[in-house]
Design a protein around this nucleic acid. Structure first.
Length: 892
DNA sequence: CGGCAAAGCCTTTTT
DNA sequence: GGCTTTGCCG
């Protein structure tokens, strides 16, 4: 149990318990707090529901927090309250979040409430980081060493590929990536190789699924490594197999808080349930525990309000005063802590069980991670899992206008099986803009129009920082980036290509990993021949096989191997040099500043030189990244600590100083808010995403709808939705139809560019379609056209691909110079129409022939050079050869 | 063994 | 359409 990571002694039970003072004794703040008639300052400003969520500290609590209802505030205040009331030491509170971002934010906000006590909250973090923490302490109980490596997806796939090949299987037919997904899925359910259903086991690799999974787990063990899933599965196994350890943790965590409970998967649920079980253990005196940093629990926050200065004279010492805080509300004094509320049934319902003090906060309407194993049922089932649970609904929204809430609520109302919340806002303002829906011809137009809108907002005095573009899929980002680069508009991509995923960074990390974790064969293999040392496949295989035969890590194998005559002189010398270097660096590890050592390693290995010699355009940037890597390493205590950070926190901080538009996926946007939000790409197939529909069916669609709900509710005041008629997918232009979600928006709260004169027969927003052919023709406003369009048939729909779309797109944006001369309001282009465009895209053979002269809106004139169904290959005069659907061109 | 060209891959979301 | 991997050749 003594290892470098075990800086925090686990067995709190053997620490001296603080001696609680009797309640009401002296002028202690605790005493005042307990006897206080008036609420502590940090409770002020909470609405009644929020307050109930904060103050119901005992027993299970489910907080259903709609978007923008102050969820984080409730969570952080609740923790502050628990600490302030002396109900627990900071280290006795387990608070789990889903993302690092959320954990960071909570730490910051608790910090604001309670000053320094956050450092005493070692158990506030993501599921994964807390899993790691547990594992480091008890690694040997699951057959690992406490300095185990955490593999990322990339390592995982490389490893699986090796195993698949080792089984003599074709790694093309059985892609490692796919298998990695399957393993993830199993681990999300908490399954090991023995637990997976027969069907699953057979589905992969000619029935060798289970075998491979077992081999993979064994290999991980010898590598002393974990994948992401193991960070949850191992702790579960560990706690189940070691009741004493489990009991320690159960006892330790007096209060459990879970953020985004709707996103928990089965493994996370099992883990929580284990920890939340309460047993009364008579032989064991409950023990108070001090925070590791000796920070006292929150004191006097209620006296000084939320903005206590760190220099406050009352904080800083962990003296007796703070210990007095440990007396619980209602306690009459003495040494024995009061029993927890006696329960009818605890979790797991055992007669000895006490109801756990677990508080889960979530929103079933924002469950958007089903695809990676999250189980909405966890939140829907809460009251059954934890009988007697208090349920608090937070429905008062502090973020968005009534229009945005109205639109979002109406949309999400199309989902079934909700717990049912309705967001409302206090004071609707008649001046609030409605949600805007816009049409564009293609994604380029969309990007241009969004750019123009952003610039207009900017001219109106809005900060770019208050605007965000939320896309469904990351490939949509590029178009915006391109456009913003030409406009010179600052933007920032959130969750885009990540710093730690860059090749050079990963290479450098591999060097560091081998130095710190000599058994890390994956890292070793990655860099044996980078830079080139003349150690190709043949040499690597030799080392690999030798290592497997002897059962030692590859580095050790290499060391032995160079002492033999087995290798040819040249590679042998190269390998010997490399091994010697690693040994030297390992010696330096403990007595050299780690950032300095890192630099040395990159220098001496020739890695830096490799990029210096590289004349390509990206080489300077890569060198810059390496410098940045070393710079960021300085902030950490050791190289090991740095490695751990990187494997768990894959994001690098963004430059917050710059005023810039944010571009991110809808998933990445959860939990954020912006004054103005742009939601492009509302088209069938993209949003809702085809794959979600194919694989998830009805529930897949509902999850997409929740994603739309998340998107809408990010907006505080302005919300612009866009859809386009043409989008390039896999390099091929495809026509698209407006998203069904547009049809699910309520007319009352939505402006569709220009209000149409007629809605399509049925109530609500009606059909969402913009009729481009009409718009084009109607520059002359022919009533005949209009009628014809209203009765559109297969025949007329061929016009759909004509140039008219651009004019429609200009509705409401007259100042844009499109060259099409459609000024504001000059186009009356909208006809509602129920029939879906999909039918109009011909599946029959094209009626074009090779050699035809055609016109395409985007590419101009060209000649048809080949035909394949309704796909045409066209040599355009200016744009070169492209493949397009025949609906998008017309004969000239 | 290394470099280059061609072919195949995939593009939903992520700790 | 862009990126990675593969395969062939020097």
């Amino acid at each position: 149990m003594s290892n470098p990571f075990d800086d925090i002694p686990f067995d709190d039970a053997h620490r001296p318990a603080p001696a609680p003072k009797p309640a009401g004794g002296g002028s202690g703040i605790a005493a005042r707090a307990m006897g206080a008639r008036s609420a502590p300052a940090y409770l002020e400003g909470l609405n009644p529901e929020q307050r109930r969520a904060v103050e119901t500290t005992e027993g299970p609590v489910l907080v259903l927090a709609g978007a923008g209802t102050g969820k984080t505030r409730v969570l952080t205040t609740r923790i502050a309250h628990i600490l302030a009331q002396g109900l627990a030491w900071p280290s006795q509170v387990l608070a789990v979040t889903f993302t690092n971002k959320a954990a960071r934010e909570m730490k910051e906000r608790i910090g604001l409430l309670v000053g320094g006590a956050v450092e005493g909250m070692p158990w506030l973090g993501t599921f994964h980081s807390i899993g790691v923490k547990m594992l480091r302490r008890h690694a040997e109980l699951v057959g690992l060493k406490s300095d185990f490596t955490i593999l990322d997806t990339d390592d995982q796939i490389r490893l699986l590929k090796q195993l698949i090949q080792a089984e003599g299987l074709d790694d093309k037919r059985w892609p490692a990536r796919q298998f990695a997904h399957m393993i993830d899925g199993w681990k999300n359910k908490g399954w090991g190789p023995a637990d997976i259903p027969e069907g699953d086991a057979r589905a992969f690799a000619n029935g060798k699924g289970r075998e491979l999974f077992t081999a993979y787990q064994n290999r991980l063990k010898t590598l002393n490594a974990c994948d992401f899933g193991d960070l949850l599965c191992h702790p579960i196994r560990l706690l189940k197999a070691n009741p004493d350890v489990l009991a320690d943790y159960q006892h330790k965590f007096r209060y459990i808080l879970v953020d985004e409970y709707q996103d928990t998967n089965t493994a996370q649920y099992l883990w929580l349930r284990l920890l939340a079980q309460r047993r009364v253990s008579p032989h064991r005196q409950p023990v108070e525990e001090r925070g590791e940093t000796a920070s006292p629990p929150l004191r006097q926050a209620q006296d000084e309000g939320l903005h206590r200065s760190p220099a406050s004279p009352l904080m800083g010492e962990a003296g007796e005063a703070s210990e007095a805080k440990l007396i619980r509300v209602g306690e009459t004094g003495g040494d024995t802590p009061p029993p927890l509320t006696p329960p009818p049934h605890g979790v797991g319902g055992g007669p000895n069980g006490a109801p756990p003090n677990i508080c889960c906060v979530g929103d079933d309407d924002q469950s958007i991670y089903g695809w990676r194993g999250a189980d909405v049922d966890n939140i829907l089932r809460f009251e059954k899992d934890f009988p007697g649970a208090s349920v608090v609904k937070l429905e008062r929204n502090y973020r968005s206008t009534a229009h945005i809430l109205g639109a979002a609520s109406h949309l999400i109302g199309h989902n079934e099986g909700r717990l049912g919340k309705t967001l409302f806002t206090e004071a609707p303002d008649p001046d609030d803009p409605k949600v805007n829906v816009h049409a564009a011809w293609d994604s380029e137009e969309e990007a241009r129009a969004v750019g123009e809108t952003i610039e207009r907002h900017q001219r109106d005095g809005h900060l770019l920082n208050d605007m965000a573009i939320l896309v469904r899929a990351s490939f949509q980002m590029r178009e915006f980036e391109d456009r913003f680069v030409t406009l010179g508009l600052n933007y920032r991509v959130i969750g885009g290509p990540r710093f730690y995923e860059r090749m050079e960074v990963r290479d450098a990390m591999a060097y560091f990993r081998v130095v710190c974790q000599p058994a890390d064969d994956l890292a070793f293999e990655r860099i044996v021949n980078t830079p080139k040392r003349g150690l190709g496949d043949a040499s690597v295989r030799l080392v690999h096989d030798y290592a497997r035969k002897k059962g030692v890590p590859m580095l050790a194998a290499a060391e032995e191997l160079v002492a033999t005559e087995e290798m040819k002189p040249k590679p042998r010398a190269a390998l010997r040099d490399l091994v010697q270097s690693f040994r030297r660096w390992q010696e330096l590890l403990d007595n050299t500043p780690h950032a300095e050592l890192a630099e040395t390693i990159l220098e001496e290995s020739g890695y830096t030189a490799m990029w210096q010699a590289d004349r390509s355009a990206e080489a300077p940037g890569r060198l810059e990244n390496l410098k940045e890597l070393i710079r960021s390493m300085e902030e950490f205590e050791s190289m090991r600590a740095f490695l751990e950070h990187v494997s768990l926190v894959m994001d690098a901080e963004q430059n917050e100083d710059m005023d810039a538009v944010s571009i991110m996926t809808l998933h990445a946007a959860k939990g954020l808010e912006f004054d103005t939000v742009f939601l492009p790409g509302w088209e069938e197939g993209l949003f809702p995403h085809q794959r979600a529909l194919d694989e998830g069916g009805r529930s897949g669609l509902e999850e997409e709808r929740r994603l739309a709900y998340v998107g809408l509710t990010r907006a505080k005041r302005h919300c612009h939705i866009w859809f386009v008629s043409n989008r390039r997918i896999h390099g091929l232009w495809q026509s698209t139809i407006p998203s069904r979600f547009l049809d699910e928006l309520p007319t009352d709260h939505v402006d569709v560019a220009e209000p149409p004169s007629s809605y399509g027969g049925y109530g609500g927003y009606g059909a969402s379609r913009f009729d481009r052919a009409e718009a084009f023709a109607s520059t002359r406003e022919s009533p005949g056209w209009r009628r014809a369009q209203a009765n559109r048939t297969e025949a007329t729909s061929r016009n759909w691909g004509s140039r008219s779309g651009v004019a429609v797109e200009r509705i409401g944006y007259g100042e844009a110079d499109s060259g099409f001369g459609a000024g504001r309001g000059s186009v009356k282009g909208r006809v509602i129409e129920g029939e879906l465009i999909a039918k109009s895209v011909s599946k029959t053979a094209s009626d074009f022939s090779v050699g035809d002269r055609v016109f395409h809106l985007k590419f101009g004139n060209g000649n048809v050079t080949a035909i394949e169904g309704n796909k045409l290959t066209i040599a355009f005069d200016r744009a070169g050869e492209k493949k397009v659907l025949d609906g998008f061109v017309e004969r000239v």
